[in-house]
């Protein structure tokens, strides 16, 4: 299946993609702010990074086929997201081992 040929029909304006990206970012932000479990917060961060990727790729498509910066930086964002998830989960497991909880509002030892 030739995806490029399928996608050569651009029936949706880039603004639509950008609005989806904005909504996804906002929902990810709500997940980050409202979840009590640290892993849920990480899930929200992944959603926000995905929203940014959609915006990157959309602008890559807007500014012509010869400027590949949007796609290249989407690849970098995915790589950094992988690194972030790995280190974040290692931290969460270490916290769980010492405190037996991953609820962020119970980790308040530094509170005066």
């Amino acid at each position: 299946m030739d995806f490029a040929a399928v996608a050569s029909y651009v029936a949706v304006a880039p603004t639509h993609f950008l609005v989806v990206s904005l909504l996804l970012f906002a929902l990810g932000l709500v997940a980050v702010l409202s979840r009590r479990n640290a892993i849920g917060i990480l899930m929200g961060v992944e959603l926000m990074l995905n929203a940014v990727n959609i915006a990157f790729v959309t602008f890559d498509r807007v500014y012509g086929p010869h400027v590949l910066a949007g796609q290249v930086f989407a690849v970098f964002v995915i790589t950094v997201a992988a690194a972030e998830a790995v280190v974040g989960l290692a931290l969460i497991l270490a916290v769980y081992r010492s405190r037996a909880t991953v609820a962020v509002d119970e980790l308040n030892e530094l509170k005066g």
Binding site: A7, I39, E46, V57, R61, I78, L89, L93
Partner: peptide, 30 residues
């Protein structure tokens, strides 16, 4: 959505790394 934007390579990377690695890692941590 990446496929709709004509970036099939990014779509593949998305499925391999996000779904195949990051999401599975998150579920393991859960």
């Amino acid at each position: 959505l990446f496929i709709l934007l004509g970036c099939e390579f990014l779509a593949g990377v998305q499925v391999l790394i996000y779904v195949g690695a990051i999401a599975v890692l998150l579920l393991f941590a859960v």
